[in-house]
Design a protein around this nucleic acid. Structure first.
Length: 920
RNA sequence: GCCAAGGUGGCGGAACGGUAUACGCGUAGGUCUCAAAAACCUAUGAGGGUAAUACCUCAUGAGGGUUCGAAUCCCUCUCUUGGCACCA
């Protein structure tokens, strides 16, 4: 019989792909949608290997949710694009010796080809590619807004330099002191760079994070990265060895001021105190006779040695402390002692103030240092063990926790924590210290000395710089309003920011109507070792006129960080066709664009349409990898908050939005990763699986189902070929079952089948909502088993299921297997002659289940004796509500009687409709 | 070191106070066939026990606790995976 044929996936997929495209199935109306739902998935960077099943796993999991929402009546917008600018893509282009522009054109074609075939409901009319000038025009615009609002500045700083990628990196891109891209050990270099003041939003980023509906591990990672600490900066008077006060102070940050135990101070080798010491205070300074020449020389040598070491070297050497005595002392306020000031590399310049008050009895690192250099150790806290003996081992060091103060004057007897608060109060009162809040979060380093990115849209004029002018001295600047108070206290905190407002002298943004600054096609795009960007070798690019004085000026030749590209892409998607005419894919990356070609928008003010944005954003459901916790997900929140504060995003009057537009992604779901042969899929492991061959062999639907069946979506799955075969068999089984049902034209389902169907409808809906796709699929398998088992044997699969019920089953399967279900659904609906959007299975309402059908006529009651299962008894549903009825019925069981014989029943536990337990 | 998430059959995993091992893979045996493929059927945690049913005991990383009842809740330990880390 014809209908018993196998499901021919490739024909079906091709057919529906075209039909859906024709009726624009996946393109919601951006301006009129009544129930907009923006189902966002992190856009991929087009890697060299192409799309692998790891990507497809994530995309499919996001897509199933989107399809489900659409069947629930939402206007679902599910966009896709490519994050193709940046080091990753450029490195690969360099490796294979192909120009990044050509490479981008090729990977875009390949990637989009693959993405067309994975069964996702992407709106192909609105894609975003970060390297297109009509996109990066606005990335540059964003940079300029940052600058104009005082959130972008030039900073000379010790920055992370990757010798492999030959560029600087943001702190977030350094993993284990190595480059997250290429793995090379990161070196410190002092360079002048552009920074974004993300630290101005540290507090808001932190506070909002607590109530975000996000994957917990991501929130925890962000909170840790922001690293808020409250403590006190204590100022110490420096004295010489005779106790004579010098014109020097050292400020130490501490969260735990156990000052009665402070027996020395330690400053970082990079600390200005040390620089002063070596430079000025030593030789030839008559007032500093206390310092001898030899000592100063030794200190200089030590500092030089430390500067030569990389961060990695310091770690390899372990925790063994090194250091040198400075020859000077500080006065301990509370003990009056003269305590030595040491110089050591275990104190980091970037943390706190770069100087600490060392309390070896109550800090393990200080303890180790004191042991090494034979410095006094004092105990001021008795811990929960009651030990009050002198501290001589590491284990005795009490850093925090419960405890009582001793040897601490006015603090004696107080609980540890309370004493710390009291100390801070006291120090502030005396004017010795000031409470401060510090953050681990650093400003975002934006500059990259690379080629493949948006040129930073800035111009530097030396003449203006000398005259003390910048954009901030222009009329335009004076007209700008700053709704947000500038947090100058924060700026002062960060040592990188010291140096005042001269940081932007001579700098002007490109006038906005001249954007974009097109990235020119150059052939010498390789990065150099010298920290000079490839564009800096091209006069025709950088030579320009000063927008202010009209004199000779130069363009910035660095490009911006990839994470700036991706920090706002979700704002662009819904408006792509509404603000600027779409460009032909691939045509725009040949470097032949002029600003006039991309400046085709009517409004010309914003990269997004305000009305559309208000309708679709914030993103209600964002799916992606947790590896971007402190990168993309933090940067996007920052950029969004800044844009809002500047008045570029308006969500006023939005009811029901959790943060009233305060946050870009109200929900973030972190998906798991696909494992193959015990490890994460990666090219270096050689275990990358390309979905293409599986799609050809088994069909997309089978592959989607298989991937989702491997485990809970947030935990990832294990890819195995043999299990893939099994899922393929199931797809065929469904096909055969459906054919059979259709040939029988049954009008009613058997009671068992009807019930199974409704159980499945309920379960699948609930499971999709909580993204337990694996159990949703098993529920459908159970239903199919029930239907097939009821059918006549002898190989003729398919039982008594009504055609209408089959449709409902197809609907709940549709988000998982979009092609086969459409094919079968259209076969069932033979009355439809022309295919329209509304006749597609994907626009059918999600089936409702009938609560009454879920109730069983009879219920299995579990009978336990002392909590152990002894029997199960099937009773009529109406008889299981009352304890006495059940008890009576159950006691007729011989098995139960056997266990109750000769025993006295002390207690009977009864769970209505479920269980009865005799305690004897 | 600190923080987070996890350890369940041969394997992926279900169940998340109430029949542990759903669903699937694998394996074994069978049906159909000249044969194979496909499909279908049966069995499948471990151990004991029976002629065969029956039945019994033990198993959710280890140990303890709470409870009538624990894979599930609590404590201690251990291992795995992720994040942070000489952060003062």
């Amino acid at each position: 019989m014809e209908t018993m044929d196998r499901y021919q996936h490739s024909d079906v997929e091709e057919k529906w792909r075209m039909a859906w495209e024709k009726v624009k199935l996946d393109t919601p109306d951006s301006t009129k949608a009544k129930k907009p739902f923006y189902n966002l998935m992190m856009f991929p960077y087009p890697s060299a290997e192409g799309l692998h099943v790891g990507n497809m796993y994530a995309f499919t999991g996001s897509d199933i949710y989107g399809r489900f929402k659409r069947m629930q009546g939402f206007d679902v917008f599910e966009p896709i694009g490519l994050d193709g600018f940046g080091i990753h893509s450029e490195n690969y282009a360099l490796k294979i010796g192909r120009h990044p522009m050509d490479h981008a054109a090729i990977t875009q074609k390949n990637f989009y080809n693959q993405l067309h075939k994975i069964g996702s409901m992407y709106d192909w009319s609105r894609t975003v590619e970060t390297y297109n000038p009509d996109y990066y025009r606005w990335t540059q615009w964003l940079f300029i807004q940052m600058f104009k609002h005082g959130l972008a500045y030039r900073g000379k700083a010790q920055v992370n330099w990757c010798p492999g990628c030959k560029t600087v990196l943001a702190d977030e891109q350094v993993v284990d002191n190595s480059c997250e891209r290429c793995g090379n050990a990161v070196k410190k270099r002092e360079l002048e760079q552009w920074f974004f003041k993300i630290t101005a939003y540290a507090e808001k980023l932190l506070q909002n994070s607590f109530s975000l509906d996000w994957a917990n591990k991501v929130k925890v990672a962000q909170q840790a990265w922001i690293g808020k600490k409250q403590g006190i900066n204590i100022t110490y008077q420096v004295v010489d060895k005779l106790g004579k006060p010098l014109d020097r102070e050292v400020v130490c940050f501490t969260t735990t001021p156990v000052n009665f135990a402070a027996t020395f101070l330690v400053v970082a080798p990079e600390h200005p105190f040390v620089t002063d010491l070596v430079g000025k205070m030593g030789v030839g300074n008559p007032s500093q006779t206390a310092l001898d020449k030899e000592n100063i020389v030794r200190i200089g040598q030590y500092v030089d040695e430390i500067k030569k070491k990389t961060h990695q070297d310091r770690i390899i050497e372990g925790r063994k402390k090194t250091g040198i005595f400075s020859g000077l002392y500080a006065l301990n306020h509370v003990t009056g002692d003269r305590i030595p000031i040491w110089i050591s590399d275990f104190v980091l310049m970037g943390v706190g103030t770069g100087a600490i008050q060392a309390c070896p009895g109550h800090d393990v690192r200080d303890f180790e240092f004191a042991m090494q250099f034979d410095i006094d150790i004092k105990r001021v806290v008795i811990g929960s063990d009651g030990d009050s003996s002198p501290i001589s081992t590491r284990e005795q060091v009490i850093e925090h926790g419960p405890g009582k103060m001793i040897n601490s004057g006015f603090l004696d007897g107080l609980p540890f924590e309370e004493a710390m608060t009291k100390t801070m109060d006291y120090f502030e009162q005396k004017g010795w210290g000031k409470r401060v809040t510090t953050y681990h979060l650093r400003d975002w380093l934006i500059s990259r000395q690379r080629y493949w990115g948006p040129p930073i849209p800035m111009i530097y004029c030396e003449k203006c710089a000398n005259d003390g002018n910048s954009w901030f001295t222009t009329e335009e600047s004076k007209k700008m309003s700053f709704p947000r108070k500038r947090e100058s206290s924060l700026r002062a905190m960060d040592p990188r920011l010291r140096g005042g407002d001269k940081r932007v002298a001579g700098w002007y943004p490109i006038p906005e109507d001249q954007l974009p600054v097109i990235l020119p096609r150059i052939e010498d795009y390789r990065p150099g070792d010298d920290g000079i960007a490839p564009l800096a070798k091209h006069k025709e690019f950088y030579e320009t006129k000063c927008p202010s004085c009209g004199g000779k000026a130069v363009r910035e030749t660095d490009v911006s960080d990839t994470f700036l590209d991706s920090s706002w892409y979700f704002l662009r998607y819904p408006s792509v066709n509404n603000v600027i005419p779409a460009t032909e894919p691939g045509s725009s990356i040949q470097g032949e664009w002029t600003p006039d070609q991309v400046r085709g928008d009517k409004k010309g003010l914003l990269p997004w349409d305000p009305e559309i944005t208000k309708r679709w954003l914030p993103v209600p459901m964002y799916t992606g990898g947790a590896e971007h916790s402190v990168l993309h997900l933090m940067y996007s929140r920052f950029v969004w908050m800044a844009l809002r504060d500047w008045g570029y995003l308006d969500f006023s009057g939005e009811a029901g939005s959790r943060f009233a537009g305060d946050e870009p992604f109200t929900t973030f779901y972190a998906h798991g990763l696909v494992i193959k042969d015990g490890s994460k899929m990666s090219k270096s492991k050689g275990n990358v699986v390309n979905p293409d061959e599986y799609i050809v062999r088994y069909g997309v639907d089978a592959l989607r189902l298989y991937l989702m069946f491997t485990g809970p979506f947030d935990q990832g799955g294990d890819f195995r070929d043999s299990a893939m075969e099994g899922m393929s068999r199931w797809v065929q089984k469904v096909w055969r079952m459906a054919q059979n049902i259709m040939s029988k034209h049954s009008m009613v389902s058997s009671a068992t089948i009807k019930k199974s169907l409704h159980i499945a409808i309920k379960k699948v809906g609930e499971d999709i909502e909580r993204r337990r796709y694996n159990t949703a699929i098993s529920a459908m398998m159970e239903l199919v088993n029930t239907v097939v088992d009821e059918g006549p044997p002898a190989g003729e699969a398919g039982g008594v299921m009504a055609v209408e019920d089959l449709k409902d089953f197809l609907k709940i399967l549709a988000p998982f297997a979009p092609y086969m279900t459409e094919e079968l659904y259209q076969m069932v609906n033979t009355s439809q002659y022309t295919f329209t959007k509304s006749s597609s299975i994907h626009f059918q309402p999600w089936p409702a289940y009938d609560e009454k059908l879920l109730v069983e006529d009879t219920v299995q009651i579990v009978v336990q004796v002392n909590g152990k299962l002894r029997d199960t008894v099937r009773l009529k549903t109406q008889d299981v509500r009352r304890k006495s009825d059940v008890e009576k019925a159950v006691k007729t069981s011989a098995k139960v009687a056997k266990y109750l014989e000769g025993k006295t029943v002390k207690k009977v536990i009864f769970v209505p409709g479920k269980l009865i337990n005799f305690v004897v």
